[in-house]
Design a protein around this nucleic acid. Structure first.
Lengths: 232, 232
DNA sequence: AACAGGTTGTGATATTTATCATATTATGAG
DNA sequence: CTCATAATATGATAAATATCACAACCTGTT
């Protein structure tokens, strides 16, 4: 991890439209001055369970995961989060500002750190900001809960199909992409074993639904994948 | 459902300490005047997916469930919610104020309806309220997400044990209680089939971990149940 | 180049869970 | 009260998934 020399001036930052849309100029400049932008290399850990969390950490570019580590060493990936995703809002002000799960970086990423204290003051002093913040919070937590409910109703093939479609539709916006995670991590996200994820991907390949070339996936028959995802 | 004649005067309402701790007297009186208290009988539906939701509906007494209805008619219970639980906060301001899941009443219950518009105004005008609201939101959504992650790492016996312990420790605060839900609903909450929930409860009975008398459950060997829950 | 360690891949087998069938017992409606 | 229906219960079997074993390949390091 290293702070970049050239920090963003925040003027055109996308996050501004998402949760900082209703800040006064001075408020925004204050945030921009106190923020810290940091660059993480693939695989680096941003924070771990038990660690104090006194910044709102949002993703500017790259890809990250939030995950639980279980007693027996197995992980559960709670969510894979794209730039400007609102998930980080769920990590702050929680559990006395001590992390209850881990965050690490799946692809080289730029993260923006904003002191929680600033966010707290904004909530207290700027009702419009507070409202935007609440809306985002509610949307993102319902989305995450929905994810788990959805998974619970799918079998192995359905889960793998669902995961591939999510990457295609919400992360890469195309039908050919490099898997940003290992088969093991897919398993940790959809609640299956690594072997069965590999096997299912191979099945899809044999059925000519997808092409596989190492980490590269090409979705050939999207319609069938959608069918399988819905219930297969 | 029927409105009760004698409405609560809100003076000693527990919710006041939870999310309305920092209201001015006038603000609180305003809420108290505009709220509506309603009584629901066991089994009644409070709202369904697709229905407009323009009230914050919190539970004063009784027990409720929030649940998804799947395409094939099967349900998934997202959470079972006790009085003054913060889960209702997640239901408002979401999806253009249209419900994305259902809510129904597990035991005869008294619900308090507060117009969302009042909440919105409070968020805008009272920073302390907004902050309390956000804290509760974050706590409850993390708790719900944690629930699903936890379940994913348990087998059938572990899930049933976990469910019984939750009822004992967070709902009834004792080791003897009446199950507020059918075996089918337990299955819908922990993601298993009804038959296997029944079978597992019978197993626990045969192993003298619990006693079963219809809906009444008595936990005899709590330590073993905890062990099974942790990983059985 | 050689090695260690992790990832991917596949088959055989064991285990877990779901499904189907059927009986018994509650519960609610009329 | 009586019937219909749902809930509980249990066994037999089928299906899904996990586990174990092993090989091939890739990647980074010395």
């Amino acid at each position: 991890m290293s702070e970049t020399k050239q920090q963003c001036n925040c003027k055109e930052c996308i996050i501004r439209n998402l949760i900082f849309a209703h800040l006064k100029t001075t408020e925004f400049e204050n945030i921009c001055q106190q923020k810290a932008e940091k660059y993480y290399k693939k695989g680096q850990i941003v924070f771990e369970k038990g660690q104090p969390l006194d910044h709102l950490i949002y993703l500017k570019s790259g890809l990250v995961k939030y995950y639980h580590q279980n007693h027996d060493g197995k992980n559960s990936i709670i969510t894979i989060s794209v730039p400007y995703d609102a998930f980080p809002l769920l990590t702050i002000f929680h559990n006395n500002q001590v992390a209850t799960y881990n965050m690490s970086v799946l692809e080289d990423s730029t993260l923006c750190f904003i002191p929680i204290e600033l966010i707290r003051k904004l909530i207290f002093n700027n009702g419009e900001f507070a409202f935007d913040f609440i809306i985002k919070l509610i949307e993102t937590s319902n989305k995450t809960i929905e994810h788990f409910v959805t998974l619970n109703n799918k079998n192995l093939r359905g889960r793998v199909a669902y995961f591939l479609l999510k990457l295609s539709d919400y992360v890469y916006f195309r039908d050919v992409f490099e898997l940003p995670v290992s088969r093991k991590e897919i398993a940790e996200h959809i609640g299956m074993t690594t072997e069965n994820v590999i096997r299912t991907l191979s099945e899809f390949r044999k059925e000519k639904i997808i092409k596989i070339n190492g980490k590269e996936i090409e979705i050939i028959e999207k319609e069938r994948l959608i069918k399988i995802s819905q219930y297969g």
